[in-house]
Write a protein that binds this DNA or RNA. Structure first.
Lengths: 200, 200
DNA sequence: TTAGTAAATAAACATCGTTCAGTTAATTAC
DNA sequence: GTAATTAACTGAACGATGTTTATTTACTAA
């Protein structure tokens, strides 16, 4: 009966196991320090098996890249229900940084890592990145209509806000904030977001 | 006579040739895609020769890392002669981003790349990074005394400004701004710096 | 039970960073 | 000027990497 269905299920389960192991390893040791054999060890299969589910190491990266963007986009959308445009913008920034801190491995893959091969560069899934940028611009525009961002170009404002939250996220993800005591980091970040708000 | 001197000279010349070839390759293809054999080919020596001048691949990286910070620090210092604290801060930010755009390979190695081995983490030469951070804080403090940054914590302000310029630099260096037409990038960046100035 | 198919393996390949025994060139000692 | 010593360099070799493959194992269907 459901033989085909079970096989299908097992196939996706195996893919999930590989992706999950790879994501954890990528996060702990970095893309280049993760070997296919390490992933194989972690899922307790031989190396060759992975190649039955993924073309190569880059495809594993690519899939994680896509999932990162999907989750990212979902979170960005979730703040859109906030009415006040300024509050919404703040929540937008917080959601951005929170995503980076919660899933540093995804954030890395999405916005920092050098893309292995050219496949990602102009890929379909960067569109999800552009879409979130459009949301940001929309939110800024509405803030403008509410009287904020006077005498500021929309593109400049969007670029500035993005750079700001990316800067924080990138420093955190690539561990350039080790001189900051962990307990001060959170207030520092929320302080920074508040500081940026003065420019609105 | 000057045999020792000549040998000394030749030794440093060889080191320079290796470093120069490595920097160009790192910049073009990324640290992990550069092989010792590629570097050897470029300087027209055998692989083994490189190991007479550098302990390993990481040491080449490390040396470039140090040089990046040295040049970086020099540039940061050079804006200190500007009297007006706000003008100085702006120049500071501009110098920061200009360094990143002029030497993306150095900036990468200094603030973005995952550090190979632990040697860099708490190394002596990160001090140069901390020193530039101290300069930034000093400049902000003087701007505060001149009446700016009212009701803002010094650490928050420093962190914010750094995150901001790093965000721009990192997006540029890791090519996440490819959707922005090149001719718009410069005005976008100077616009962003001006925008941030509204928060001072 | 058996033939056929899918899944998994282990061995092999080319290439990587690194090492080292051996070769060549330059310098010093006599 | 020749031999001995030192320095510079080479290229083959090692273990580990990503990937491919022939082969074995496990499951399915007749």
């Amino acid at each position: 009966m459901g033989v085909k269905e079970r096989k299908e299920r097992q196939k996706t389960e195996m893919r999930e196991a590989i992706l999950s192991a790879a994501l954890k390893l990528f996060s702990d040791e970095g893309y280049d320090n993760v070997t296919m054999r390490k992933i194989a060890d972690k899922i307790e299969y031989s190396v060759g098996t992975i190649y039955l589910y993924f073309k190569d190491k880059g495809e594993i990266f690519y899939e994680l890249h896509n999932r990162g963007f999907a989750e990212f986009y979902k979170r960005q959308l979730s703040v859109q229900r906030i009415k006040d445009p300024i509050e919404r913008l703040k929540a937008h920034g917080e959601a951005y940084i929170q995503f980076a801190m919660e899933y540093p491995e995804y954030y890395d893959v999405m916005f920092i890592s050098r893309t292995p091969a050219k496949e990602i560069k102009k890929s379909e899934h960067w569109e999800e990145g552009e879409r979130t940028y459009e949301i940001l611009k929309l939110n800024i525009k509405q803030a403008m209509e509410a009287g904020y961002f006077k005498n500021v170009d929309l593109d400049v404002a969007a670029f500035s806000l993005w750079s700001f939250v990316h800067g924080i996220s990138a420093l955190f993800v690539r561990e350039r904030l080790s001189m900051m005591p962990t307990e001060f980091l959170k207030p520092l970040i929320s302080g920074a977001l508040q500081f940026l708000g003065r420019a609105y």
